[in-house]
Amino acid sequence: MTDMQAKTPLILALPKGRILKALRPVLHHTGFEPAQDCLDESSRRLRFPTSSPGLDVVRVRSFDVATFVAYGGADIGVCGADVLLEFDYPDLYAPLDLGIGGCRIAVARPKGSGDGEPPEGRSRLRVATKYPAIARRHFASRAINAEIVHLHGAMELAPALDMADVIVDLVDTGSTLRANGLEEVETIAHVTSRLIVNRIALKTRPEEVGSLIERFRSAVAQSVQKGESV
């Protein structure tokens, strides 16, 4: 029994990009040193060993972290709460808020459009977004059937090019919105990065997964203490 456990390392899925950068100090405090090229985005490798033989890292797109962990390809992962909201996988647990990568999901529209009237004034609305599920749910709760224009980037262009009335997107400082003549009208949710865990992994390997969560928990505390996190 313990033999089998020792043979298959747990797999930690990390997102490329913005969150990975913010995660570095926390990762450092966990004491798991991933292979040199793991944090180097130019590396072509996708799977990396760490200083612990019981843990491997895979590096995937931030939108895919939730899917890798939900399907059990990875046992544990780090991803933004926006991705969790969008996919809402029942097999994902989010036991720890890492407090990094803070931003928000917001509705934005061209400056001065609608003469101050809220988008709720209409019963249908065309929305450009990379979060179709979040946008649909949000507007449905306001009795609006959102017509979704699903884009993977550059949604800020959509209102100006007459593809959509509003956009729903991740907003950090808001400078991209301003640069494209958009204004934020509503915040749907505040977002930070979470440590996520596959439910079945937590049930079948409770000791290992539990101690991993605890290591991240104390790493976050150390990182906050040293003032590394925003």
């Binding site: 969790l84 029942p90 994902l92 647990y93 989010a94 036991p95 720890l96 808020d97 930070t192 979470r194």
Partner: peptide, 8 residues
Amino acid sequence: LDRRDASA
């Protein structure tokens, strides 16, 4: 609770 989302 179902998603064990501690901050939520």
